[in-house]
C-alpha cells in the first residue's frame, strides 16, 4: 500500500519535471521545481514511516526548509537582475 502512494508521488514529480523542462517562462520552471520539492518532503516522510524510524523525518523537515529558502533566493536573484538591467537600459 505504501508502494502505491510512493508511485503516485513519483508520477507527480515526473509530470512536474516535464513541465520544468517544457515551461515557456522562467516562473513556470521555478513553480515546477517548487512542486518537486514539496513532493520530495512527502516522499521522505512516507519512506520514514515505512521504515518505522522517527529520525528520518528530520531529513524531511530540513528539506522543507531548504526548499523554501532556495525558491525565495532564486526569485530574489532574478528580481534584482531585472532591476539592474532596467537601470542599465535607462542610462
Amino acid at each position: 500500500m505504501f508502494t502505491i502512494i510512493s508511485i503516485s508521488i513519483l508520477v507527480v514529480m515526473i509530470i512536474a519535471l516535464i513541465r520544468a523542462i517544457l515551461g515557456p517562462t522562467l516562473y513556470d520552471r521555478i513553480l515546477a521545481v517548487n512542486v518537486v520539492g514539496t513532493k520530495t518532503v512527502l516522499l521522505l516522510s512516507v519512506l520514514s514511516v515505512t521504515a518505522g524510524r522517527g529520525d528520518m523525518v528530520d531529513i524531511a523537515l530540513v528539506y522543507a526548509l531548504i526548499n523554501f529558502i532556495s525558491v525565495i533566493a532564486v526569485l530574489r536573484f532574478f528580481e534584482y537582475n531585472k532591476e539592474q538591467q532596467a537601470d542599465v537600459e535607462q542610462q
Binding site: S8, I9, V12, A16, R19
Partner: peptide, 9 residues
C-alpha cells in the same frame, strides 16, 4: 496530487 500535476498541464 496527481490532479494538481495534471492541472500544471
Amino acid at each position: 496530487g496527481i490532479t494538481g500535476a495534471v492541472g500544471l498541464f
